[in-house]
Amino acid sequence: MSLTKNQVIRFSDLNVKFVNEVVEYGAKIFGKDAANTVRYCVQCGTCTASCPAGRRTSFRTRQIIRDTQLGFKEGALTNDDLWACTTCYTCQERCPRGVKTTDIIRTLRNLAVREGHIIPEHKKVAGYLIRTGHAVPIDEKTKKLRVKLGLSKIPPTTHKFAESLGDFQKLVKKLGFDQLVGFKEGTR
């Protein structure tokens, strides 16, 4: 007979500074006031009840904010559910405390990716972006259709202007985005 598993959470299990990390990171983009709203959540559940993804997955919007507030850093960042959100903003629109829920979810996702939590499908899309400047690059079929419709065969984007693509890629490298998403030259 083995020992029963401990069910109790202690401070040693929590990362109480995690919420500060989230606020600090989010503040760089959204501003201090917006990022700080994560502290205002009173767990009313309006967000979860508004969420279209929550109705068909185990994703509970309110739980993500709870985990952040309490300090379940690993739980918050490794949770697959974090990626079920379509960023439809309904939760943020309705939150009675003005919590910028969707923006905080994007912030958490950034922190997750920084810790290496990114699925192959997403790496693939990032690869397209880095290689072509487009998340959805043009294909042969569409080139033909464009001509048929009287449009330019190649749209006047980074697909057409190599110098612009060069600038684009320069920025991507300078920001370290390619390394962040594990992009390797010459791979698919």
Partner: peptide, 24 residues
Amino acid sequence: VRGRVAEVSEDPKTKKLTLRVEDI
């Protein structure tokens, strides 16, 4: 029930109302 109701919708035929809420 602890949970703030997010939205109320109406069945156009019966006029009954459906609440969406999370039981926290």
